[in-house]
């Protein structure tokens, strides 16, 4: 029942909004994972990033799609929490310093074991609009623990101008996603992180130029 509601929202709100208001264009869509376990790793500049990424997936994949998001923001009130978890499918992760022995990524591991597709923003925050911040290492630990899951790098552009952090004013600009070939964990965590960041930076070259002075 809830899944049907989510699919209706996808068709009547999410996709029309992405296409008509944000003129969303995609390159390299063939690289998008259709089945789990998989991790989609994208740069993060706006709350709209999650909406844009979800709009790319077929309705049938909706039940397996889990955007990983900060528990402090997305479970702040009961209503927000219900909407985030049940409608968007958010997988909340605690951002604070974990207690001894607790694994903040346990939920992500379980989701991958259930063959779900995680959407992860390795920057961990929206940061400055349209700028790539430092990557956090959680994604490398997940990739190492789940070597079967392909990591699909995605470069997102535009949403940081449409609705940047700290703004309530939505201004339409075209948004772009460039999806790269999946990479897999190999070597050590820092090497993998550098490789992932390079992959996302490289995808930027396929997006139209962005001049924000």
């Amino acid at each position: 029942m809830l899944l049907l509601l989510r699919q209706i929202i996808l068709w009547t709100l999410v996709r029309p909004f992405a296409l008509l208001v944000l003129g969303f264009e995609t390159r390299g869509r063939v690289h998008l994972p259709r089945t789990g376990p998989a991790i989609v790793a994208a740069n993060h500049n706006s709350h709209l990033d999650t909406l844009l990424l979800i709009s790319l997936f077929p309705a049938a994949a909706l039940s397996r799609l889990r955007p990983v998001a900060a528990a402090d923001t997305f479970t702040a009130t009961p209503l927000v929490s219900w909407f985030s978890r049940r409608i968007i499918g958010v997988l909340p992760v605690d951002r604070g310093r974990p207690e001894r022995g607790a694994d903040p990524l346990a939920g992500c591991r379980e989701a991958l074991a259930r063959k779900e597709i995680l959407i992860i923003f390795p920057e961990g925050t929206r940061g400055d609009p349209e700028e790539l911040g430092r990557f956090k290492s959680g994604i490398a630990r997940l990739a190492e623990a789940e070597p079967d899951a392909p990591i699909v790098p995605v470069y997102l552009q535009g949403a940081g101008r449409v609705l940047p952090r700290g703004s309530m004013l939505l201004v339409p600009f075209n948004c772009f996603a460039v999806i790269g070939a999946p990479i897999r964990f190999a070597g050590k965590r820092p090497e993998f992180m550098a490789r992932l960041k390079d992959a996302i930076e490289a995808l930027r070259a396929d997006a139209p130029p962005l001049r924000w002075l």
Partner: peptide, 8 residues
């Protein structure tokens, strides 16, 4: 608006 230079 997407292509031209604009200021933040």
């Amino acid at each position: 608006a997407t292509l031209v230079p604009t200021r933040r």
